[in-house]
Design a protein around this nucleic acid. Structure first.
Lengths: 143, 143
DNA sequence: CCTCGTTTTGCAAGTATATTGCAAATGCAA
DNA sequence: TTGCATTTGCAATATACTTGCAAAACGAGG
């Protein structure tokens, strides 16, 4: 693999500043970010929000980033680095998100079932957990 | 368990027509519905959209319905019936959604890992698959 | 290094989804 | 049936995202 800029140019798209920054920002974040959060981390001069949206769509369609659906109003994005695959845990109280790489993520049994019963060819999945983060557990249990 | 109306009254909330219809509509649907889809299925007179949103929030906070996060712009909802637990498969091409009840859904290994490494107390999870539905597979493969 | 055609960006306007305040209508216990 | 708390409809507002268009940036070729 190469730098993000190389990856983009190889695919025939100019590596503009905005695209590079989005990839850098997402790479540096341990959790997926919303477009607003991405914008807030942009070093000045900040691009317009529409530019960020357009670039996120492009990068997603090229497979360089991936959108993550948590139970929120806005979408979040993370880098889709080479096979690495992540799951999320979201705190139902405070919304805190943690992201982790599964030790081994074998859902092939599900995928085989789905193919035979529903006929879908599964290419990807998304697994999120919801519960209480350490801080909120402490508060609500009273200990 | 009892009727939805009883469940609501037991929790101290009036069982209004809107609430009853929402629960009925969601119960009858094999896949989770958006607020707009719910509204469209309402027998006249249709309530205002804000009423549907308010009731969905209430029902969700009471645990009678549950929101499902697919990679879309709007939220979807399904009934949270007594332990029954569903997963979804979404077609990346046409958006078609299928829902199924897992034969056995053992993600306790994940949950134990999460508790020990991240400290979250997991109460729930959400697993979605993405791929190509039978129709779109046929079209894109050319056979 | 400069020129030129293509692609992207900023800006403004537009759309979809969701939330909120308030007065009128409804639910339901007595 | 009455009375009071709760909910509903309506209108306004907020938020997330999309789109059209002219100006600016990109980068290939000279």
């Amino acid at each position: 693999m190469g730098t993000p800029a190389e990856a983009l140019r190889k695919l025939g798209y100019p590596a503009t500043r905005g695209r590079g920054e989005i990839l850098r920002i997402l790479t540096e974040s341990p959790i997926p970010l919303s477009s607003k959060e991405i914008l807030d981390r942009f070093p000045p001069p900040r691009p317009d929000a529409s530019t960020v949206y357009r670039n996120l769509s492009l990068l997603a369609s090229l497979g360089l980033v991936r959108s993550v659906a948590l139970h929120e109003r806005s979408r979040r994005y993370e880098v889709a680095s080479d096979g690495a695959h992540r799951h999320r845990v979201v705190c139902r109280e405070c919304g805190r998100i943690a992201s982790f790489e599964p030790r081994r993520c074998d859902l092939s049994r599900f995928e085989a079932d789905i193919r035979s019963t529903l006929g879908y060819d599964v290419k990807d999945h998304s697994l999120e957990f919801f519960g209480a983060c350490p801080d909120c557990r402490r508060t609500e249990n009273g200990r």
